[in-house]
């Protein structure tokens, strides 16, 4: 489903951000990607979304290969991914409902298809009662729930989250982690980037891929590995 094979990523000025990274994420799996700042976690996410291409090696995402995919095919790939960021990235002048609907609008869906789906998804993240609030009228945790709903509304096969709790209080961070766990229980794969070790402890069965200076130093799926 997601396969990294000997992936290297070198940026023009800063050098290698990832070196010889290989892993395979399976259907429905919950995976943490962790590691210190600058380890290459965000770069890894960008390789999954094909915002960046590997310098060497290949990334395969559900039938798309990094060395073959054409720019005009990327939108179709993105619709199969749900993406969540640390800073929520909501449209400030639109309500929660409109922000979620936006992801469906850009796919050309009709209003009749959009409305019920948006309400169902907002319910799934526990925000039915705040559907008509603007982001400025929502707490950080609530805003992140809206962002998760937006990521989910296109029925992706995996939810990618880059430090989704980075801007939140520890207690709220746990709430958000619980949302991801709920979603995962319903069968959706989750790849959650975090450097917050307490989160890892909250989900002991999850797979952990640890990066350091661009290399995988631990992958619990391979047993406790190299380091």
């Amino acid at each position: 489903m997601i396969l990294f094979k000997n992936v290297h990523k070198e940026y023009p000025r800063t050098g290698y951000a990832l070196q010889d990274v290989s892993f395979h994420l399976r259907k429905g799996e919950f995976t943490f990607v962790t590691g210190p700042s600058g380890a290459g976690k965000t770069t890894l996410v960008k390789l999954v979304t094909m915002e960046e291409r590997p310098t060497a090696g290949t990334v395969r995402i559900s039938g798309y290969a990094s060395d073959k995919i054409k720019t005009r095919e990327i939108p179709a790939l993105r619709r199969r991914l749900g993406i969540v960021f640390q800073d929520f990235r909501l449209l400030k002048n639109r309500t929660a409902r409109e922000n979620v609907a936006f992801a469906l609008e850009v796919t050309g869906a009709s209003a009749e298809q959009i409305n019920p789906k948006v309400l169902r998804t907002l319910a799934a993240v526990g925000l039915s009662d705040k559907a008509d609030h603007l982001p400025s009228e929502l707490s950080g945790g609530e805003q992140q729930r809206v962002a998760i709903a937006r990521a989910l509304v296109n029925d992706p096969f995996i939810l990618l989250a880059d430090e989704p709790t980075g801007n939140l209080d520890p207690k709220v961070a746990l709430d958000i982690l619980r949302v991801f766990k709920d979603i995962n229980l319903r069968g959706m794969a989750v790849l959650l980037v975090t450097h917050d070790r307490t989160l890892l402890g909250e989900h002991p069965r999850a797979r952990i891929i640890e990066l350091d200076q661009g290399r995988i130093v631990r992958d619990t799926a391979n047993g406790e590995a190299a380091g």
Partner: peptide, 11 residues
């Protein structure tokens, strides 16, 4: 955001 959620260039 549009690029992220899969909007095409023509859209």
């Amino acid at each position: 955001i549009m690029k992220m959620v899969g909007a095409t260039r023509s859209f």
